[in-house]
């Protein structure tokens, strides 16, 4: 009982275990799983990432003004839904040019609010497919 009393007393002067969040940033490792990033110039449009994605968060849809990439013969545009993505990085493993065309960062997606209409915009894209 004496030890527990002593412990309780010393606890008064101990720092809390939690992080003082808005003032101190949360520690972030460079390998944490975050957003998938894409560089259009390096893409060869093999569409392997689209097939590999389990939730279907990557879509290549036809567009009227596609990019000037010469590999892009069908006039496709890359679309990525960070709110559907599960950050498993299957797409990066499927990509023939990982780290150049497609890679995983440790960034968070921005918080979407209702007026952003992320869902209905994505459903429109899915219809085009």
């Amino acid at each position: 009982m004496f030890t527990s009393f002593f412990k309780a007393f010393t606890n008064l002067f101990r720092k809390p275990q939690t992080i003082d969040y808005p003032l101190t940033p949360i520690p972030k490792d460079k390998d944490y799983r975050g957003l998938i990033e894409y560089r259009e110039e390096s893409c060869i449009y093999c569409l392997k990432c689209e097939k590999a994605c389990p939730p279907g968060a990557i879509l290549f849809v036809k567009s009227d003004n596609p990019s000037q990439n010469e590999k892009n013969k069908k006039g496709l545009v890359y679309n990525y839904n960070p709110y559907l993505c599960i950050y498993c990085s299957e797409c990066v493993r499927a990509c023939p040019k990982p780290d150049e065309a497609l890679w995983q960062s440790n960034k968070k997606p921005e918080i979407a609010i209702k007026s952003d209409n992320v869902n209905s915009k994505w459903f429109e894209l899915e219809k085009l497919k």
Binding site: D31, Y32, R33, I86, Y87, C88
Partner: peptide, 8 residues
């Protein structure tokens, strides 16, 4: 793994 709960 890069994640706390859903390891994948």
């Amino acid at each position: 793994t890069g994640n706390r709960i859903q390891f994948d």
